[in-house]
Nucleic acid binder design. Structure first.
Lengths: 196, 196, 196, 196
DNA sequence: GATGAATGAGCTTTCATTCAT
DNA sequence: AATGAATGAAAGCTCATTCAT
């Protein structure tokens, strides 16, 4: 492990903790659990993240950055707002399928442990990469007339809440179809809701 | 307190725990915390709810029943689907304003502590009162041609996720306006998304 | 239940507690458990036995009296020491079979909860009915020359320990045969050990 | 304490718990009691034994091994069955005198807390070291004609029950003489019972 | 950097006993 | 005599964090 740079090792810790926190929840995942998963000593973990909360905050930033990056790519495409919505929904559900821990972390850790994120992540600052790209998407397409002008958070809540809600339902095993099969319905619904 | 019947006392416990769980989270609220809030001994609490998890499950049923009841009333009104959506959104935000603990419990306790609700509330069974009324709303208005026919969960996820998402944003203090001021925008968005 | 005299009701409580204590152990049997078994309120139980320990001590006296009575009958028979030993062993194993709770109470409650019996049953005083009859048996048959003269407790320990040990082994399910099938072997062994 | 290896420390915990459990009983000895006796924190105890029951089972194995080892040595001696019996009785009473906790643990913890030993020690598996050596003693001396052939458990119950019974009587302070003074009587009785 | 034994406060839950009715 | 809600101390166990090596 000595050949890994400090930053690489931090990422390894983040990836592993992300999975464990998402699967078992923040309070049911212990630092020894994480350390064991990483074949690392408990004490050494503290050389990289000085507390469980600081680790949790690093994870949400990490996750938000990856999601933001993916939306940024979609934003740069030369396609209609309608098509962009579809791509965002498809991308989101694809992640929920392939790397469910990323979405679940939002839903089950970030959303519900306010106190953990209180000192350092207040006001969505730690998910700004993700929020910003949704904002760019929204404002660009309002400007070019494809989407109706309205309060940004009315639109943001729709995206974030709707997509998150569907992933939650999937997790509860109440959906008969795969998330993939919902892409059409849901992107249409979002488009109808927002279009000019 | 002796003049309260067992059922009334259970409800008092539920109401108080609901507030504490919503405010501080399930794992940060201890049974002694709840007991103290109720001026009741820890041991006696266990005469009413035999474990913390069983209490948590009673609360979600209680909350879902109240919400379901309110939607049921709206469902019975002789108004258009468009107006019903507006009433549901207004009612939801009104509760989020007046009794925020009910909505927050959904978001911060039920949604994110899968293991707590695993034995007894699997598959949304404990929120069925709420889900059922949304289902009735949706199917009646599809039948009478006001809403587009689509997978129920595509519609349900929109309602539940969108409204929950807005309340979350409010809780994060990122909304400048009061929830009330969002009723118009959001009910329009939902209507556009679902209308025939 | 009102037609039962106080003494009869105490016996009912004793019989029921005897079974529960024997089956689950003293510490794993709660007063509410006993009360429920008796269809009686917890508070009322305390009208008959003012503490769990006092109940436990009443039980050992009750049990010892019954066993002592049975040995007394054997002592009065006009048969040889050899035959008396056989009868005692057979009687003991018969009880262990038909009312195992009586023997188990000796083994699993009385023997192992010294502190419970400390104030009121010190020095085998609560089992004296049983001990006395064994003593009578022993001394009479020493006097008439059928048994060797030796320290009484050397003989008493043989009876009590051997028989108790066999019942313990039965309880551990390591004996392939029924206790009844051991009567011959064991009474021979005891007789050989003690005879003049 | 850092110079002690993990195994040595486990043994230290076993020795101390053995004393406390024997003296006060399993249910009246708390983990904090044990930890305090060891000048160790409660939490750290759980690094060595993951539950109170697992500790109790480790103790019975430990104790049985030591007793078994002592009988094994006697078994290897080139002396008569009669003399071996005497040595076993003497050894047993010597331990009961010098390390009474070992014998008391059998009597007051192992024998009477069936549920504690249910998962892991069923069917005398945790005392097999001791049982096996008694079996070897018995079978060898049946084979060479010194002891009568009979069901093993008839003989085993005699040893275990008789010796245990005497130690129990000693503990109840009803014996006027020291255990040592009973060696002659009791080994004669056992020998008469078992001899060919 | 790396280790993992050690800490101890804090958690959920239990239960003998009391007492107002 | 009878009820059972109420008490509260104490139990077994957990875990974030530290620190000597």
């Amino acid at each position: 492990m000595a050949f890994l740079k400090k930053e690489e090792k931090k990422n390894r810790i983040i990836e592993t903790s992300l999975k464990l926190f998402s699967k078992n929840g923040f309070h049911n995942t212990t630092i020894p659990d994480i350390a064991k998963s990483l074949n690392m000593s408990v004490g050494n973990m503290y050389n990289y993240f000085s507390s469980k909360e600081i680790l949790a905050m690093a994870i949400i930033r990490y996750t938000s950055d990856i999601l933001g990056e993916k939306i940024k790519k979609i934003n740069k495409m030369k396609i209609s707002a309608h098509e962009k919505i579809r791509k965002i929904v498809a991308m989101y559900f694809n992640i929920a399928d392939k790397k469910p821990e990323m979405i679940e972390y939002f839903l089950r850790v970030y959303l519900s442990n306010r106190d953990v994120f209180k000192n350092g992540c207040e006001g969505m600052i730690c998910v700004s990469a993700f929020v910003t790209e949704i904002m760019i998407f929204f404002e660009e397409n309002v400007r070019n007339g494809e989407l109706r002008d309205q309060d940004f958070f009315s639109a943001f809540g729709l995206f974030m809440g709707y997509l998150g809600g569907m992933v939650f339902l999937k997790g509860e095993e109440v959906l008969e179809k795969s998330l993939d099969d919902y892409v059409d319905d849901i992107s249409e619904n979002i488009y109808f809701a927002l279009k000019a």
